[in-house]
Amino acid sequence: MARTVIIFGARGFIGRRVAAALTADGWRCIGVDRYGRTTGGVGDINGPYFSGSDWSPVALPRFLRRCGPAAVVNAVGASWSTDPAVLRRDNVLWPCRLGEACEVSGSTESILHIGSSHEYGATAPGVPVSESSGLAPVTEYGRSKTAGASYLIRAACRMNSPATVVRAFNVIGPGHGTHGIWALAVGLYRAAAEAGADRVVANVPYPETARDLVDVRDVARLVCLAAGRGSGASVATYNAGSGTATSIRQLFDAFTEQTGIPYRFVRSPVDLRIGSAWQRADVSHAESRLGWMRNFTLADSIRACLALDEPAATALV
């Protein structure tokens, strides 16, 4: 009989790719969006799963029990919100409530949480960050993701169940959200191609800022492998990255190579987001323990996004 997995945030950028990968791997997948609407034939969550600021402490455990013994994947999260209240609600209060519900239900076999590279904080240029690196988030977003993960890990430990954190670096690829440098670049190049423009102009104050860019399909595959790891260690963490630091300038160079459309940067500090100036993941742990390999290059991700007609997916589901 297929194992059951419940994916919260299953309609989001990462969540829907995770659901597709787990389904293809033979899991019985139950997808849940932030309004309690489900897939998998188990019925919607009966109660205010999410309505304004209401995260039901009653309906959620009842729903988990109805699904039967299952692994739980948390792909819910607010990404780079300018509203601290939204960050706290989605990245801190929700994981806390989910952890409590898993404990109360008595039916949760394991918990897997999608974390963020921003939990590591500022990293030294040239030095890849590994899972054993200390967590020192410097942004409100990073701190909220760190707090949320801690609630779910503690809940799993109290249940004596495996807990896994897949710490995603800068996730790119088809179906992307609306925030970040990747969404900016895709939007600009799509618009330029549609308008027949001869140049893209981007507001990039610090073009040498470098991030580890990883395709969402590779992240989903890592989640799939991690979910099937069995009991193993009580707590496991895996970096989901490409193992390459790509500057914003290099990213736009890659878009130019794929489209033939050159770019020009303007350097207005308006709406500048503060974060590490350089990040690169050490992905050797996922490679050696899970046999995970990255399948999609930066060029693959660009081609997939520029070929899509579908609108960008929201990350807040």
Results as ranks from 00 to 15, higher is better:
Val214Gly: 09
Ser116Ala: 14
Val5His: 03
Leu98Tyr: 09
Ala192Met: 02
Glu310Pro: 03
Val186Cys: 09
Ala192Leu: 08
Arg229Phe: 00
Asn295Asp: 15
Gly68Pro: 07
Cys102Val: 13
Thr139Trp: 00
Met159Ala: 02
His113Leu: 02
Gly241His: 07
Pro269Asp: 10
Val186Met: 04
Val266Tyr: 04
Asn91Leu: 12
Tyr49Met: 07
Ala168Tyr: 01
Pro205Val: 09
Arg66Ser: 15
Ala281Asp: 09
Val166Phe: 03
Ala254His: 04
Lys145Cys: 08
Val216Glu: 11
Met159Ile: 09
Asn46Asp: 13
Ala281Asn: 04
Arg65Leu: 08
Leu290Ile: 14
Gly243Trp: 02
Cys157Ile: 11
Gly52Pro: 01
Ile172Trp: 00
Asn239Val: 03
Val58Ile: 11
Glu109Asn: 05
Leu98Val: 09
Glu194Lys: 15
Ala136Tyr: 07
Val127Gln: 11
Ala85Lys: 12
Arg249Tyr: 05
Ser56Asn: 13
His176Trp: 00
Ala156Asn: 09
Leu112Val: 14
Gly196Thr: 03
Val104Leu: 13
Ala202Cys: 10
Arg273Ala: 10
Asp300Glu: 05
Ser268Gly: 07
Ala10Ile: 02
Ala122Thr: 13
Trp292Asp: 01
Ala210Trp: 02
Ala312Leu: 12
Gly40Ile: 02
Ala20Glu: 14
Ala202Gln: 10
Gly260Tyr: 09
Val200Asn: 08
Thr108His: 02
Val235Asp: 01
Glu257Cys: 12
Pro269Thr: 09
Val270Leu: 13
Asp54Trp: 02
Gly260Met: 08
Val104Ala: 15
Ala210Ser: 15
Ala183Ser: 13
Leu135Tyr: 10
Gly187Asp: 08
Leu22Ser: 02
Asp90Arg: 04
Ala254Glu: 10
Val200Leu: 10
Ala24Phe: 00
Ile6Leu: 14
Trp80Pro: 05
Ala163Gly: 10
Ala193Thr: 14
Ile45Val: 15
Lys145Asn: 02
Asp253Glu: 12
Pro128Phe: 08
Ser242Leu: 03
Val73Trp: 00
Leu316Ser: 14
Asn91Phe: 09
Leu225Ser: 08
Tyr263Glu: 07
Gln250Arg: 14
Ser301Asn: 11
Arg28Asp: 03
Gly121Cys: 11
Arg273Trp: 05
Leu213Ala: 12
Glu103Ile: 13
Trp27Gly: 03
Ala236Trp: 01
Thr178Asn: 03
Arg217Lys: 13
Ser268Val: 06
Asn239Leu: 07
Arg65Ala: 15
Ser268Ile: 06
Ala286Thr: 02
Ser56Glu: 05
Asp309Leu: 09
Ser268Arg: 05
Val73Gln: 07
Val270Ala: 14
Val266Cys: 10
Arg303Ser: 14
Leu213Pro: 04
Leu225Gly: 06
Ala78Val: 03
Ser107Val: 00
Ser116Gln: 11
Tyr151Val: 09
Leu251His: 05
Trp182Gly: 09
Ser79Lys: 11
Gly31Trp: 01
Asp90Met: 15
Val166Thr: 10
Cys157Gly: 13
Thr178Ile: 03
Tyr49Phe: 15
Gly260Thr: 10
Met1Val: 13
His176Lys: 02
Thr146Pro: 00
Pro262Glu: 08
Asn74Phe: 03
